[in-house]
């Protein structure tokens, strides 16, 4: 018997097939405004920026990226911006070639007020390592895409989200407290994370 069949046979014998699934959870009602999202984000070490009008976005981002070194922006960001201190993410590059990126500018979707997380869909980060290799990560988020809690956040994920091999929830910068419980930002990934709220993207 293969290991698979052996394990499954034992599990099948042990499983009772009695208790049914409890169904959906009914969360308590909570606020989903930018203010609440921003204060949670701040509490987890992130920087809320804005919200800004889409017309001011280019200017706001230029400020954020000034003198930063190599700035790479992902798909879905470019069309709303003019020229600036950034380059578009080249197609088909190896992740290793992005090791020197100082700032990654990526299009986030779905903000979660209860935990400050922003969804980063694989389509907006085609090089899966980019949001972890950069020194600083900047995510753009339409304020209308903020939901109160994780249940609604996951319900909002596009139906094909899990087909696109990676989908990230990112809440604040990389951090560790492994040395005597002292919180240090930038353990491996970005040392800082800014989320730029946009009132009327497109």
């Amino acid at each position: 018997m293969s290991a698979r069949d052996g394990v499954l046979a034992r599990v099948r014998r042990a499983a009772r097939h009695e208790v049914s699934h409890p169904g959906a959870f009914e969360p308590a009602r909570m606020d989903s405004g930018w203010e609440r999202f921003a204060s949670t984000l701040h509490a987890v070490g992130g920087e809320p920026v804005g919200p800004v009008q889409s017309g001011d976005l280019s200017w706001a981002l230029s400020e954020l990226c000034a003198d930063a070194g190599r700035v790479v922006m992902g798909p879905g960001v470019a069309q709303s911006l003019g020229p600036g201190p950034w380059e578009e993410l080249p197609e088909g590059v190896s992740p290793q070639s992005l090791a020197d990126v100082a700032v990654a500018l990526l299009r986030g979707s779905i903000g979660v007020a209860e935990n400050g997380a922003v969804a980063l869909d694989g389509r907006h980060a085609p090089v899966r390592a980019l949001p972890y290799l950069c020194e600083r990560l900047i995510l753009l988020l339409e304020t209308s895409e903020i939901v109160p809690d994780m249940h609604q956040a996951i319900a909002r994920m596009p139906p094909d989200a899990t087909r696109f091999h990676h989908f990230y929830w990112i809440s604040g910068p990389s951090k560790t407290a492994d040395i005597e419980q002292t919180l240090v930002l930038g353990a491996h990934g970005p040392r800082s994370l800014a989320v730029v709220g946009i009132r009327d993207l497109q």
Binding site: A24, V112, N115, M157, T162, H165, W169, I170, P173, G189
Partner: peptide
């Protein structure tokens, strides 16, 4: 996937008091 929300809300709060871990990565294939 819907069940995941329940566990994500509990895990980090119970572990370190964070509302969620900094990175929650869903990998399919």
């Amino acid at each position: 996937l819907a069940d995941l929300a329940t566990f994500l809300r509990l895990l980090a709060r119970s572990a370190t008091g964070q509302p969620i871990t900094a990175y929650t990565s869903l990998v399919t294939g």
